[in-house]
């Protein structure tokens, strides 16, 4: 059982405000730049502009889940509760972007493919990733003991991360037995520049979001420790 020790870590380092504003303004700039500079696509016309939000959202989703995996492994290895809080923060931000990726993808898919959803490997594994995030966050909200919550959610996060490539592989197999997917076409430079700039902007925004959430999580945990100490009658806590 977890000891009711007060947090051994001082107050968290606050996320710098300039990072938030910088990321936001950079994001505005890269969006306008990408939309203004890219010509209409031969097949999709201006629908192609969806790429500048959809692809970066997908990229930061996977990056955030990578953070969850690494932080969870670190937590199980070192028992550092800050790693647990970082994993939780990354999972929250990741699930937000994962949901955004799915919705944007559907909005893009409907006019392009004629359907809202297609059961291909990429779509299905992104959906499964979203469901795993949802399960991870529900588990956290249903377990009170902080130590237990940390251990359990780390295990769920790691197993979930193992599962994503397996889902991808199995769905790919499932699909190829039924029909062959079309390959995505190569990207010409005038699109690529806008895409790369937006990837950078989304990454900065994600770092800002996770940092802010982590800061809040640290204060929440400190409050939890203080409440626990008070309940045990420890006036020094």
């Amino acid at each position: 059982m977890s000891p009711a020790t007060p947090s051994q870590f001082g107050p968290p380092k606050p996320a710098p405000v300039w990072l938030g504003w910088g990321a936001f303004l950079f994001f505005l700039f890269t969006q306008v730049y990408a939309v203004a500079t890219s010509p209409a696509d031969a097949m999709m016309g201006h629908l192609q502009k969806m790429m500048y939000v959809h692809v970066p959202a997908a990229w930061v989703t996977f990056a955030a889940f990578g953070v969850v995996l690494v932080a969870s492994l670190h937590f199980l290895w070192k028992e550092d509760e800050r790693a647990d809080l970082l994993a939780a923060s990354a999972a929250e931000v990741g699930s937000l972007f994962c949901g955004l990726t799915l919705v944007l993808g559907m909005l893009w898919g409907r006019p392009t493919w004629g359907v809202w959803w297609s059961w291909d490997a990429r779509l299905t594994s992104t959906l499964v990733l979203f469901l795993i995030f949802v399960g991870y966050l529900s588990l956290r909200s249903f377990v009170e003991d902080p130590h237990r919550r940390g251990q359990w959610s780390a295990a769920v996060g790691i197993l979930g991360a193992i599962n994503v490539p397996i889902v991808w592989m199995s769905v790919r197999w499932w699909r190829t037995l039924h029909q062959i997917q079309s390959n995505p076409r190569g990207l010409s430079p005038e699109y690529l520049r806008g895409l790369l700039l937006n990837l950078a902007a989304f990454t900065l925004l994600t770092i800002w979001f996770i940092w802010r959430r982590y800061e809040a999580a640290r204060y929440e945990r400190a409050a939890e420790h203080a409440a626990q100490a008070a309940a045990l009658g420890d006036n020094n806590g």
Binding site: V128, I132, N163, M169, S170
Partner: peptide, 29 residues
């Protein structure tokens, strides 16, 4: 995990079903 948490009835399927997709898909196919 789920049996020792609050809301075990909903938590187990929520955690388990997405994890079982590859196994189920392979078994069904």
């Amino acid at each position: 995990m789920s049996s020792r948490s609050r809301a075990r009835e909903v938590l187990l399927p929520l955690l388990l079903y997405p994890m079982l997709i590859p196994v189920l898909l392979a078994s069904m196919e």
